[in-house]
C-alpha cells in the first residue's frame, strides 16, 4: 500500500515538476512532509543537504532517499526513483522528441511557460518559508549562519557545496 502511495506521489512530482530541482523540492515537500508525513521537516532539510552534496539531480537523489526513509527498504527507493523519472521519459518520448520542431516555435507553449516561470519562483520561495521552523532555526547562531550563507551565495557566488562543508564545520564548533 505504501509502495503504491509512494509511486503515485513521486509520479505526480515528476509530472508537474517544471523549472528544475529546486522547484521540484516544493512539490516533494508538500507530498512527503505535509500530506503523507513520511519524513519530518528537519529530516527534509537534511535530505536536501545530502542531495546537494552527492552527485546527480537533486530530485532523483531526494526521491531515492525519501523512498528508503518512508519504507525502510531499498524497494522504496527503487519505486520512488522510477516514479519521479517516468513522466519525464513518457513526455519527452511521446511529445518532445516527436514534435521537436513544432514545439520549438509554438506560441501557445510560450504563453503557458510565461505563467509557469514566475510560479516556479513562488514555489521555491514557499519551500524556503516552510523550511524556516524550529527544527532548522534553533537559536540566534542559526540566523547568523543563514545570513552569512545567503550573502556568500548571492554576492560572492560561493560554491554551494563549499558552503555546506563550511556550515558543517561551523556546526561542529558552535554546538
Amino acid at each position: 500500500m505504501i509502495y503504491w502511495q509512494l509511486f503515485i506521489s513521486f509520479f505526480k512530482i515528476g509530472l508537474f515538476g517544471f523549472g528544475g530541482g529546486y522547484a521540484m523540492l516544493s512539490l516533494i515537500q508538500n507530498e512527503v512532509v505535509e500530506v503523507h508525513e513520511w519524513v519530518s521537516a528537519s529530516e527534509f532539510a537534511d535530505i536536501v543537504a545530502i542531495s546537494q552534496m552527492t552527485p546527480g539531480p537533486i530530485a532523483i537523489n531526494s526521491a531515492t532517499y525519501i523512498g528508503y526513509t518512508a519504507t525502510q527498504s531499498v524497494w522504496g527507493s527503487v519505486i520512488a526513483t522510477i516514479a519521479v523519472s517516468l513522466p519525464s521519459v513518457i513526455i519527452m518520448l511521446i511529445i518532445f522528441c516527436r514534435f521537436f520542431l513544432k514545439f520549438r516555435d509554438n506560441k501557445y507553449v510560450g504563453y503557458v511557460m510565461s505563467g509557469l516561470k514566475p510560479a516556479v519562483i513562488g514555489l521555491i520561495a514557499a519551500t524556503v518559508i516552510m523550511l524556516v521552523n524550529a527544527s532548522t532555526f534553533i537559536d540566534y547562531k542559526s540566523i547568523i549562519l543563514f545570513g552569512l550563507a545567503f550573502l556568500a551565495a548571492f554576492r560572492l557566488k560561493t560554491n554551494p557545496i563549499l558552503l555546506i562543508v563550511l556550515a558543517g564545520v561551523a556546526g561542529y564548533v558552535l554546538y
Partner: peptide
C-alpha cells in the same frame, strides 16, 4: 554538524 548545515540549506534554496 547538521545543526550548522540546516539553516545554510535554507539560504542555498
Amino acid at each position: 554538524i547538521f545543526k550548522g548545515i540546516r539553516p545554510v540549506v535554507v539560504a542555498l534554496i
